[in-house]
Design a protein around this nucleic acid. Sequence first.
DNA 1: CGAGTATATATCAATTTGGCATATAGCAAA
DNA 2: TTTGCTATATGCCAAATTGATATATACTCG
Lengths: 177, 177
Amino acid sequence: MNIRTLCLGILSFQEASGYEIKKEIEEGMFSHFIDASYGSIYPALSQLNAEGLVTVRAEEQTGRPDKKVYSVTEAGRAALAKGLLVVPARDKYKSEFLFEMLFKNMLPEAHVRLAIEKQLNDLREDLSRMVECRAEGQTNEGSEFIMGYGEAVLTAGAKYLESKLAELQPKIKLAAE
Amino acid sequence: MNIRTLCLGILSFQEASGYEIKKEIEEGMFSHFIDASYGSIYPALSQLNAEGLVTVRAEEQTGRPDKKVYSVTEAGRAALAKGLLVVPARDKYKSEFLFEMLFKNMLPEAHVRLAIEKQLNDLREDLSRMVECRAEGQTNEGSEFIMGYGEAVLTAGAKYLESKLAELQPKIKLAAE
DNA sequence: CGAGTATATATCAATTTGGCATATAGCAAA
DNA sequence: TTTGCTATATGCCAAATTGATATATACTCG
């Protein structure tokens, strides 16, 4: 599945500019499991427009470039429906954190602690973003499903790290005194 | 963190060819949270060799290209240690599955079921690969840590999907009769 | 008053992927 | 038996993607 289908999907909920799509990907419901940069979003929108799958409407703004608001067309909705019918590719998960932890015994304990705390923080951020989305949210069956999944996975990760951090804690307190 | 550090890390456990590194990434301990293709591994190894961070030894083979076995040098181990000291980048997780599920109500139920079953299967594969690695494994503190994390996260995901599948099941039996 | 953040689009070098080419051999199914 | 699949092994390359930067303005916070 490519970024074009991704944009169609987001636009199918609400018309948006490239900037807003990026924001949605970073802070919205999608943030946990989707990534895309401006360098891929803007060309994708141009292409979709050229193919007639979306339309553009320029909204004038003072002091800023015109906001280009994109909306899906009927053809776009059809393309989305078709694009969603492919068997999804296997999940891709990249974690520098876990790679680093593999070399735990080579690393200073302070660094290990910091890395774990950062990771825990990231997980909690993701979780609270989900809670927010649910609160505001125009939730549907689909969003309930994915947020349930995200919550399950993130909570499990956080719980594991908390227990590991607790094992580390006592040593530090002694070292600090 | 770049692929060069990744290769150094894998080679620090055992000397290997590019092919074997790729296999390790696909099937080994790393498979859950690392991804890299030949197109990035081979250039990385050449570069590491040029920088004196690894050495190469050609192993002759009948019917196949010579196997180029790479080993880390002392400079390589130092570079790895240094490379591991950076604050790890935030995890990246991409899931076409979750994106598709967001549009659950647009999709035929059979497709939804298939997608969930595939996802569940993927998670179980990852889990059993981990169990294998542990069984064979030259395990250390680091590998125990990351496999514990992986197990926690994957198990939570699988559990969630199992419960969702159970909710779906009855309707199907009726439909099949 | 300067630094940082936010809005908004766009480009581009560098990296990375995913597929292909090349070559050989074993194994299973049609 | 021959066709296709899998495995071993390296490598290239077009296409996709990232991450940083450019451009421009306005608001907020110390």
